[in-house]
């Protein structure tokens, strides 16, 4: 199987590192970390990841804005994007699904399930 490359975007260092360790250790994927929406846009364009894991609540440019930016660029518009959110209300999750993201993962997550969840959403 080809090694997957995943862009992980979260402003919280702790969470981002945990996800990185988790994806590397369990799934053996390559992880590109990004601490903000801006970093994410540059990384998505330059490194062509297979998927993007995007935190919703971030200062300055939040997950939604970042996603909209990704959609407007031809190099990044087809990269499947999964939202990470601490919002647990069903109505808010549904709102995210309607804008065309591949899926939503709720924080806090179980590291083992995280890999499975990503695989299920992306049909890997």
């Amino acid at each position: 199987m080809v090694q997957k490359r995943i862009l992980v975007v979260d402003d919280d260092d702790g969470i981002r590192e945990v996800i990185q360790i988790c994806l590397e250790a369990i799934a053996g994927w390559e992880v590109i970390p990004a601490a903000s929406g801006k970093e994410a846009l540059t990384a998505a364009q330059n490194r062509k990841p297979d998927a993007i894991l995007l935190d919703v609540m971030m200062p300055d440019m939040d997950g939604l804005k970042t996603f909209q930016q990704l959609q407007t660029r031809s190099q990044t518009e087809l990269i499947p994007t999964i939202f990470l959110t601490a919002k647990s209300k069903i109505s808010e999750q549904r709102k995210l699904q309607f804008i065309g993201v591949a899926g939503v993962i709720i924080k806090p997550f179980e590291p083992y399930n995280l890999v499975d969840q990503i695989k299920t959403i992306l049909n890997w």
Partner: peptide, 28 residues
Amino acid sequence: HELRTPLTAVHGALSLLVKGAVTPESTQ
């Protein structure tokens, strides 16, 4: 949100160690 953020990190990190995805001795 403020409480959930560190909690997510703690939970994720401990889970990785407990389930043996990483060994405590390794750099990771």
